[in-house]
Amino acid sequence: MASLKSIKKRIVSVKNTRQITKAMKMVSAAKLRRAQENVVAARPYAKKLGEVLERLAKSQDGDSSPLMQKRPAEKALLIVVTSDRGLCGGFNANICKAAERFVKERSAEFSEIGVMTVGRKGFEFLKNRRTVYKNYSNIFSSLSYQTAALLGQEVIEGFLNEEYDQVFILYNAFRSVMSQDITLEQLLPITPAESEEGEYAPEYIYEPSKGELLAELLPKHIEVQIFKSLLESVASEHGARMTAMDSASKNATEMIGKLTLQYNRARQAAITTELMEIISGAESIKG
């Protein structure tokens, strides 16, 4: 049986760990509230922008913009969004596995699939398995629309230069503290959603022309979709870390209870042994 000193040392160690996990849970809870507010604010804008593009695209020729042109798909780019830090359960591992699955399943469709990672954890996982086109790390602590805009401009430039024919983004969409959905979306070429059959489509007067508006809004649409995906990922990360730290704190509490019971039993056994030795000594003196 372990000595009383070693058991007590383990109890102190687990208690210190529990303090850390509880603190991390509280920090993640505070950050989650802000991140969730940002996601809720971004979703309606992204949705409405998509609806405007849909109406504009239907009134124009399908290939009116280079960003909407469909060409033979030979090369693809997959943007994988993970976090820079760990201790958030299966948040990063699930996305990385989904990225590997995407490359494996679509390898027959594309002659080449490049990977761009946003977040250090995704880069560390994929760098030895796939060719990572580029990596962006340490952007989540001060995430802004300008960061997403720069990323969007780089992706658009590569698409227009025919470095890749299709662009996809893979990220964790925030649903709740306990639930994050792995989401794959196609960014380029832009394919507006089709309206339901028989749906009424009102006519709008546009100023400036529809073509000018489309040319202006299409790049903006890519930037907004990337920004929304990053915000979703940040909220999902904090939710996953909060859940993981809560689970770790509960496990630590259970372990402390088990170790305390083990310590008490060992202490009782030691006391019993000492009493038996004292009694045996006393008996031997009497004899």
Score class of each variant (00 low, 15 high):
Lys121Cys: 11
Leu184Ala: 00
Leu160Tyr: 02
Leu231Pro: 02
Ile113Asp: 11
Ser137His: 12
Asn135Gln: 12
Val115Arg: 03
Tyr200Asn: 07
Ala215Thr: 13
Ala215Gly: 03
Asn138His: 15
His221Asn: 13
Ile182Glu: 03
Thr131Phe: 09
Asn138Lys: 13
Arg129Gln: 11
Val177Ser: 12
Pro189Arg: 03
Ser229Asn: 07
Tyr136Lys: 14
Lys134Met: 06
Thr131Cys: 03
Asn161Phe: 01
Gly198Asp: 04
Glu212Pro: 08
Gln146Ser: 15
Ile139Phe: 07
Glu157Cys: 01
Ser142Arg: 09
Leu231Phe: 04
Ile190Arg: 01
Thr183Ile: 12
Gly119Tyr: 03
Asn135Asp: 13
Ser229Tyr: 07
Glu154Cys: 06
Leu217Gly: 07
Leu218Lys: 07
Leu143Gln: 03
Lys220Val: 10
Ser209His: 10
Arg241Ser: 12
Val132Trp: 03
Val177Arg: 13
Arg130Asp: 10
Ile169His: 11
Asn161Glu: 13
Arg129Gly: 04
Tyr200Met: 12
Leu230Thr: 01
Tyr136Glu: 08
Phe140Gln: 05
Gly122Met: 07
Arg241Cys: 02
Leu150Lys: 14
Leu218Tyr: 07
Val115Cys: 03
Gln166Trp: 00
Glu223Leu: 07
Glu216Ser: 15
Phe159Asn: 01
Tyr145Trp: 11
Val224Lys: 01
Gly119Ile: 06
Ser142Phe: 01
Gly119Phe: 04
Ala148His: 00
Glu207Lys: 07
Gln225Ser: 13
His238Tyr: 15
Lys121Arg: 10
Leu230Arg: 06
Leu230Ser: 00
Glu203Leu: 13
Ala148Asp: 06
Asn172His: 09
Ile156Arg: 10
Glu197Arg: 15
Arg120Asp: 13
Phe140Arg: 04
Thr183Asp: 05
Gly119Arg: 06
Ser144Gln: 08
Ala193Lys: 09
Leu151His: 02
Leu213Pro: 01
Glu162Gly: 02
Gln153Trp: 02
Asn135Glu: 13
Phe227Leu: 00
Val224Thr: 10
Leu170Cys: 05
Ser233Arg: 03
Leu151Gly: 00
Gln225Cys: 14
Ser111Asn: 11
Tyr133Thr: 08
His221Asp: 14
Leu160Glu: 08
Pro219Asn: 00
Leu187Lys: 03
Ser176Thr: 12
Asn135His: 12
